[in-house]
Design a protein around this nucleic acid. Structure first.
Lengths: 338, 338
DNA sequence: CCTGGCACTCTTCCCATGCGAGTGCCAGCA
DNA sequence: TGCTGGCACTCGCATGGGAAGAGTGCCAGG
């Protein structure tokens, strides 16, 4: 329906607009790209593209700017993912390799993404539900008080206090610790409930209450979704957003503080590859003038969490997608090594 | 040197300017505050205050606005700390009591502070160096790989991997765990180095290398200053900063991302009470147009960390100081209880 | 030492004007 | 049918000149 040239015109408009931040006119287009046709022809194409809803004019007789729909077409059909250069890849790897623990990995990833894309970076901590248990530790803090520490294969640590219904001896605790670990160590979180189901039966009646309490706390910890933490960075890049300032970035900052919103945002992306949500495609109203580029990352073949960037719809999609993909890949490697 | 009335004029200027965000003139002042004198008199006082550097005019013949020095005098001499009302105090307490773990306490504190003051809130995690050890846990992950988990009295958990110079048996590990805990549990971090000094001597020669390695990792963890994490929130409030947007908030956002800067900022405040740093009193350049109100908080009588807010120099100092102080007090209580 | 009055200084707002960029349409040409 | 050059038209934006208003500094008088 859209001729090849019209698609090229759209591509050129997107590229120019992303570069200059100014509405682009027919004359400027023909000067900067050799489309082989005259401005008049381009004007006709533009009129057609506008009828289809891919571009719009801010005012009568200013240049055209892409609409969300225009960006969508650009991302889907007209632009690939721009791969990182070799030096960039090396820099990413070097920077991430310096990390000392999980917090540091996440923190470095955020900084890296923010710098590479010059946008706001969001990195979700490796999700509990998809990881495996490395170790469960039980510490007796008081006769009827136990601290439960859960360590995951991605290096994440969760702790919980458990108030026991009855005093619980050191010997029983050691027993529980040993049995628990022999059953769940190395297993996926989703399998844990099944694996510990009958564990209380192995204990003396007077200890069963406590064992059950500990186990249910453990299970709670495993499913606790609101514990899906994330880290954001590069908010200073919001200042490069546009001219009509406060009105635009206010809701964005607010949305960024609502971890729930962000988690949902990242969670929505189900693709195996890089997912792009453009403008109004984002459910959250405050993000209607932003695009979100996200991707899953993980230590093995499987994604355990997501990361991405939030930026103006007017962004360099190929470059951003390339950076996001590359960072995700290297973070995965780092996690697998540690 | 400054007469009583002139101080009152300064106070009135600060209050009005904070309220209206606009330079305040002599006529408006006499209308809104009954100073008992005419605008002309106030003008003379203003001229004097300007000579002394407490106020300034943005342009010839606009009203006056307070300078950093003016705010300083206001904070030191002219305004007290506005205490929270009883309902506010109750709300603070209720909100904080819902927290389930340390992360949650900090997160809630940040949200609370940001909401109460309508500014950017910064909360430092309880510092390691001033807390006491609750428990040290050692987990064998591989024959020559140990995970060290440190649990503090404030509920904070730090973990480190230790690569041992030689394989280390389960029995030795249990031995080390027991000896270590019996020595350091309940002790202050600063005392730990002294307490574990001779610990390797109690082990077989072949294990001493590993024990030393583990201990030095523990000591590293204790002193590691860069691990002083903090959480910030309420950045959306920056949009209420002023009219000349990007130029002002850009450096602020950048400074907020530099944890080092923030930690230094909070660390500088040595007072037992609420500390206020106004405008250029902040060492960091990006924060020259902001004021920082901070205070220490802690579970006992002693401060284990700081919290505070960052806002425009034109802020409601008495109210902000009251909110910061109240929140710090209640967070301290919560930490002491858990 | 305070007060009212007065002249003066700027900023800000508003409007008219001109310019330029960009468009839409049309007639002509391949 | 599709491309091109030409041309009239539309707006947005920057420019400049008043006019208004707020606020000041200073002075003479109480």
């Amino acid at each position: 329906m859209l001729s090849e040239r019209r698609l090229q015109v759209l591509r050129a408009i997107v590229q120019d607009y992303v570069g200059t931040e100014e509405p682009v006119g027919s004359k400027a287009l023909t000067e900067r790209h050799n489309l082989g046709v005259s401005p008049a022809t381009v004007r006709n194409d533009m009129a057609a593209l506008e009828d289809e809803g891919f571009i719009a004019q801010p005012h009568t007789s200013a240049g055209r700017i892409p609409t969300d729909k225009g960006y969508r077409l650009f991302v889907d059909k007209l632009a690939g993912v721009k791969p990182m250069t070799a030096p960039e890849r090396r820099a990413i790897q070097n920077f991430l390799e310096g990390a000392v623990d999980l917090d540091d990995v996440v923190a470095r990833t955020v900084r890296l993404l923010a710098q590479l894309t010059r946008q706001v970076a969001v990195v979700q901590y490796p999700s509990l539900t998809r990881s495996t248990v490395r170790h469960v530790e039980l510490l007796s803090l008081a006769p009827a008080r136990v601290m439960l520490v859960l360590i995951t294969d991605t290096g994440r640590v969760e702790q919980r206090m458990v108030d026991c219904p009855a005093p619980f001896g050191e010997a029983s605790l050691a027993d529980l610790r040993a049995r628990l670990n022999s059953r769940v160590a190395g297993r996926r979180f989703t399998d844990v409930p099944r694996l510990v189901e009958d564990l209380p039966d192995a204990f003396e009646p007077e200890d069963r209450g406590t064992v059950s309490t500990v186990l249910s706390t453990l299970l709670e910890t495993l499913v606790e979704e609101n514990e899906e933490r994330l880290m954001i960075g590069g908010t200073a890049n919001l200042t490069r957003f546009g001219h009509d300032f406060p009105l635009v970035i206010r809701p964005v900052l607010e949305a960024l503080e609502e971890q729930v919103v962000l988690l949902k945002l990242l969670g929505e992306a189900k693709d195996p590859g890089v997912t792009v949500r453009i403008g109004h495609e984002n459910a959250h109203e405050g993000l209607n003038s932003t695009s979100v580029v996200s991707v899953g990352y993980g230590s093995g073949g499987e994604a355990v969490a997501k990361l991405g960037v939030v930026g103006p719809t007017r962004m360099d999609y190929p470059g951003t997608m390339g950076a996001v993909r590359a960072v995700a890949r290297y973070v995965g490697q780092i996690l697998a090594e540690s």
